[in-house]
Amino acid sequence: MAQSNLYSRVLGTGSYLPPDRVTNQDLADRLAKQGVETSDEWIVARTGIHARHFASPDQTTSDLALIASQNAIEAAGIDPQSIDLIIVATSTPDFVFPSTACLLQNKLGIKNNGAAFDVQAVCSGFAYGVATADAFIRSGANRTALVIGAETFSRILDFNDRTTCVLFGDGAGAVILQASEEPGVLASALHADGSYSDILCTPGNVNRGAIAGSAFLHMDGQAVFKLAVNVLEKVAVEALDKAKLTPEDIDWLIPHQANIRIMQSTCRKLRLPQERMVVTVGEHGNTSAASIPLAFDVAVRDGRIQRGQNVLIEGVGGGFTWGASVIRY
Rank of each mutant, 00 (worst) to 15 (best):
Y128D: 07
P183F: 00
S139Y: 08
V316P: 14
A2Q: 11
L167I: 05
A299R: 01
V231D: 00
N207H: 14
L227C: 07
F54D: 00
T163V: 03
S8K: 09
G315M: 04
P93R: 00
T152P: 01
G221H: 06
D26T: 13
G209V: 13
R30D: 14
T60L: 09
P93F: 02
A55M: 12
F95Q: 09
G77M: 07
G35E: 00
I83W: 08
Y329S: 13
I78V: 05
A116R: 07
A324I: 14
A68F: 09
Q222A: 15
S4M: 10
N207K: 09
H53P: 04
L240R: 05
G114E: 12
Y196T: 12
A210F: 04
D79Q: 14
G171N: 01
E41V: 08
M1S: 15
L186K: 15
T100G: 07
E151F: 10
D158G: 02
Q178L: 03
A210S: 10
I78P: 08
E233R: 09
F216A: 14
I262R: 01
I327H: 09
L103R: 12
G140A: 04
D40K: 04
I211A: 03
I110L: 07
A28G: 00
P18I: 00
Q178T: 11
P293E: 08
R208Q: 14
S4D: 12
A299N: 03
Q70F: 04
A174M: 10
A295H: 09
G315F: 07
V119Q: 13
R46L: 05
V166F: 00
D63L: 01
L232V: 11
N160Y: 06
I78H: 04
I254A: 10
F296M: 12
A215Y: 06
I260D: 04
M263Q: 11
L186V: 04
T132G: 08
A324T: 02
A187K: 07
D63M: 03
S180V: 05
L270R: 08
W322N: 03
G129K: 04
T246S: 05
R261I: 12
T60P: 10
T47F: 06
V231N: 07
D251N: 08
S99E: 02
S291N: 14
P19Y: 06
Q309Y: 00
A192P: 08
K226I: 12
S56R: 15
G48F: 15
A295P: 11
S288C: 08
D20G: 13
S56H: 15
H50Y: 10
N71L: 05
W252M: 08
G171A: 05
